[in-house]
Design a protein around this nucleic acid. Structure first.
Lengths: 211, 211
DNA sequence: GACAAAATAGAACGACCGTCCCAGACTCTC
DNA sequence: GAGAGTCTGGGACGGTCGTTCTATTTTGTC
């Protein structure tokens, strides 16, 4: 790795960490340069523009996520072990304070970009869809393996899976709730148990109407 | 209402809408002034500082939330009707594009402020705790009414309730998933059904260990 | 070790930010 | 309708932002 690539990687590492706390818009060339010990223009020379920097930060975060969560998660045995492994590695990712002092950077970016059209948002959405699809696929394989019941709505399972993680992020990072992880694990266990057990018939119009 | 109070209210309405999309930091005096048809200094005179403006925006949003969600939600009959009513009004709040073009402003602020210590964060956390406690209380009353099973972990119920909403926000606003509401309602119905039904014993260490 | 290429620093730019001061316009009350 | 008090606009301030240009240092190769 040449000198230039080395510093570029160091910049992106620092930028990803920063983005996990404050997002991509709050990234400033000057502050980032100071953190990595460069001059403003010295850092800027590595990127054509701020938007290019932001895009590279996103790509870098995705590469890390694949390396730290997706790949090891998929290495577990097909079925429920893999579903659980994905959850465990995702939790570890969220908790890696050295890499992501603000927790999962994609949740931060999701909230920052959800009302900001542009290439950044488009890419993030694409990656998010891929990840949710991967969760649904893991559930589908669990059905094939007989761990989950036949006919399980795997897209709903992926939705509920993601839901547990979003709540963990919220309760852990905003509310600093000590029992956040415990609550998330309980919710996840119930989710897995419900997917394994028999289908619950869709409730007819609620017994207690809500005005 | 005097002229001053009137324009101050107009400013705050516009600011809450803006904050629901981009947060409190992205609010700028100049752009806000332009939107409400004031000069920069004319608007600024209503607030001693930007932080004061941000605080008033938060307070204004809370007042609206109480008026639009909490109060009408609590008006429903004790028990499951009230739990469902809170959910319905919360959904309507999230979907009110005129008031909150970026969806629930508190979710946006939660993600913006979760790593930014200060009075803004402190207040938001306080309000969030109140709201989650209100959800838990509604669940506790449903237990008393015999709608939910005795021994239900109402704090976990509130957590899972919030979890459904966070997922709705994510799938609806970032991914623009057309079935987001349907998924959220299904998750919520299952949550209510599970709280009404018999307790599921905490699963022993998973049958399929995850490496 | 010389030399081209790559990497970094320094200084300056226009734009916009929050904030302040002050004068003029408007509102409301008697 | 006059006058005190409230509200608003214009202009300027120092600061920071992204960006550009140019010079200087450092790197990698023969």
């Amino acid at each position: 790795m040449s000198k230039g690539e080395e510093t570029r990687a160091a910049i992106l590492d620092e930028a990803v960490a920063e983005a996990s706390r404050f997002g991509l818009e709050a990234l400033t060339i000057g502050q980032l340069a100071q953190r990595v010990g460069l001059s403003k223009s010295g850092l800027f020379a590595h990127f054509g523009s701020k938007e290019d920097l932001q895009l590279q930060v996103l790509e870098s975060a995705v590469a890390r996520f694949v390396e730290r969560v997706v790949a090891p998660g998929l290495r577990a045995a097909r079925g429920v072990p893999r579903v659980r492994s994905l959850f465990e590695h995702w939790l570890a990712w969220e908790q890696d304070a050295a890499l992501l002092p603000g927790g999962c950077v994609f949740i931060t970016l999701a909230n920052e970009l959800d009302d900001r059209p542009g290439p950044l948002r488009d890419r993030l959405v694409g990656y998010q869809r891929d990840w949710i699809e991967a969760l649904a696929t893991a559930a589908r394989i669990a059905v094939e393996e007989g761990h989950f019941r036949a006919g399980l709505d795997t897209a709903q399972f992926a939705h509920d899976f993601y839901s547990v993680f979003l709540a963990y992020h919220h309760f852990n990072r905003l509310l600093r709730e000590p029992r956040a992880e415990e609550r998330a694990r309980r919710a996840f266990d119930h989710l897995v148990a419900a997917a394994a057990g028999p289908d619950v018939p869709d409730p007819e119009p609620p017994a207690h109407p809500a005005p």
